[in-house]
Write a protein that binds this DNA or RNA. Structure first.
Lengths: 351, 351
DNA sequence: GCCAAGCTCTGTATCGGTCGAGATGGCTGT
DNA sequence: ACAGCCATCTCGACCGATACAGAGCTTGGC
């Protein structure tokens, strides 16, 4: 039989409450008695109050649930995700709170079960499309949900549209007119290949929708109709998927003079595809990513920088201490277009 | 007021137990009643039994604690760690169990608190030196602890010594005599630089101790005394730290003909250091890593392959369903020396 | 026609703590 | 001497569920 508070209380000859106080409120009893109690506990092999029982009574789970779409291996392969998680972990640690990973491999009954059965004080959602049933389940829990998308009243994100609009304008200034966009979650079956996206607004994935919108607007302002832009679906957010998707753009004739991607990981894949074809980034084909992960700098890649670490931190703070003022419950962080060597003027005679 | 089982029970006019059964044991009541109950729950906004209360009564937390030494950002930067975690997550998911991350930034009171207060059914320890107080705290909890080191009765690992001995023998066959070893956790202050390790057995870090032992034994068998081997401490397990440590070896005169590292991440850093000096891996300097992460293959690096994914899976299984037979509670997985282009004969006249 | 066996559902104890009000007793101030 | 106060400890209710024994009613076999 495992020792409980009562076991220790009986041993020392005090009440259960007092033993509880010895752990949770040291100021509520004399230091001598506290020492005596802790000694007895050590002797009995009692290692402190049962976390579950404590949670039940105090109403605090002591953990934040982290909702992922993708498989763990993919999610943590993206340095952006890792940075985000790190910011979150920092804040969590400062608040004596743990992180409970809830990977949503599929949007099936098992995932719903996992969401419903997670002992957490709230959820941080990392790139889960809004149509997932698991999101509803998280909502139904009646605990705070911090999103990077538009769902929910707690939100931390960036102005996605303005960010890619700036990137698009950069391309326009450079004279590009034949452009391909590589993005995840833009085809229903999530396969690699060219897809037609007549209505950007209709996309279910918040991130892809917004980022494509920004590009579309920038192109439109320069007189380039959306129907002239090649949209290519990637089957996942990884370098490999980016390269595979880029192939569908680069092997066309005439070749696009610029290939942009919705994440750096995909864009790095595009660079890989260029290299495999002996094409020079920024000369033969311009490339733009999104996130500004360390590898982007190393690859001299033009991209949009967003504060991943800070985003994680704020997500944690929003969750653990939701502001009363609704205006403060939605945080929009600044981004910055980082121009590097992967973008350059459209090759002469390309139009 | 949030709805509880009782709220739903009152609404439908059944007992609390029956509502509980509707969720947890569908076979214990008629399908019609169950439907009625679930409908009422939906109507009341009740999203299922409170996870914490359920855990308390049933004695199952529904989560595995994952203990890390390093900062989250580092831990997840290592593909080996991610693979391990992925294997663990797989098994956890199959058992309707979550993963609670418990990063041990420092070995301080806060970390102890986190370990003691984690609502988990057991801990999986990932590369935490045995001297950490947090390990004791985990032990004291009286729940299963799966280690990759020698501590605890539940263990999943590899024969570290035999693995590096094989790598060492490979070097000996190639004729190397001037050798440097880059390792983490071999200096008390964990700084970068050459350190003297007179007694390998005295090292506190299990992994470094074992891996160095294997090399030492292989060298000794070929007549190369340990005192002739240069041991260099890396300040952390990353490519950058590996490169910094390698500098201390490569800038010596005479230069070592081989630099081995205790992890692939460190070894990749060594390769970076070679490149920075226009030295050719496998020709001017041979390099060996450990783990066989994907980047190792891409870098044509000789290394020891260990089954990271499988290791994670087995850790999960050992934890969730500890075998009765003590012999089955310690699993040793096979490793394999993968020879690639980063190792070659010692340069002529190097002795 | 009768008793054992099933199927459903109920009732009570219990999981292991924390919470808030209140009891106790020594000390101070007047 | 007495009220008031602080520091210290106790008491009983409660957090929200699950476990287990058993009650009531229908079946089925002989």
């Amino acid at each position: 039989m495992k020792p409980t508070l009562q076991t220790v209380a009986d041993r020392v000859g005090v009440s259960r409450s007092t033993v509880s106080n010895a752990y949770s409120r040291p100021d509520q009893l004399s230091p001598e008695l506290r020492e005596k109690i802790l000694d007895a506990a050590r002797e009995l092999g009692y290692s402190g109050p049962n976390p579950t029982a404590r949670s039940l009574r105090s109403g605090r789970a002591g953990a934040i649930g982290v909702l992922f779409t993708t498989a763990l291996s993919i999610a943590f392969t993206d340095p952006y995700a890792v940075q985000f998680l790190r910011g979150l972990a920092e804040v969590a640690e400062d608040n004596r709170t743990g992180l409970l990973l809830v990977p949503l491999r599929d949007d099936d009954e098992g995932a719903l079960e996992a969401v419903r059965n997670a002992a957490v004080d709230g959820f941080v959602v990392y790139c889960v499309p809004g149509w997932y049933k698991a999101m509803e389940a998280a909502w139904a829990r009646g605990i705070p949900v911090v999103n990077s998308d538009h769902f929910g009243s707690l939100f931390v994100g960036i102005d996605e549209i303005a960010s890619t609009r700036a990137a698009g304008e950069h391309l326009m200034r450079l004279g590009h007119r034949r452009i391909a966009i590589v993005a995840d979650y833009i085809s229903p079956d999530r396969r690699t290949g060219e897809v037609s996206v007549p209505s950007v607004e209709g996309l279910g994935s918040y991130v892809s929708r917004e980022r494509l919108t920004g590009y579309r607007d920038a192109f439109a302002a320069a007189g380039l109709p959306w129907s002239d832009v090649i949209t290519i679906s990637a089957a996942g957010n990884s370098r490999e998927h980016g390269a595979a998707a880029a192939a569908h753009a680069l092997d066309r004739s005439p070749r696009p003079t610029a290939v942009v991607a919705t994440t750096d990981l995909l864009a790095l894949g595009v660079l890989d595809a260029l290299a495999a074809r002996d094409l020079r980034p920024g000369r033969d084909v311009s490339v733009i990513g999104f996130d500004d992960i360390p590898d982007a700098a190393q690859a001299h890649m033009t991209t949009v920088r967003q504060p991943a670490l800070e985003r994680g931190r704020i997500a944690g703070r929003l969750l653990l201490d939701p502001p009363d003022d609704p205006a403060d419950r939605r945080v929009v962080l600044p981004t910055e277009l980082v121009v590097r060597a992967s973008t350059g003027p459209a090759p002469a005679g390309s139009n």
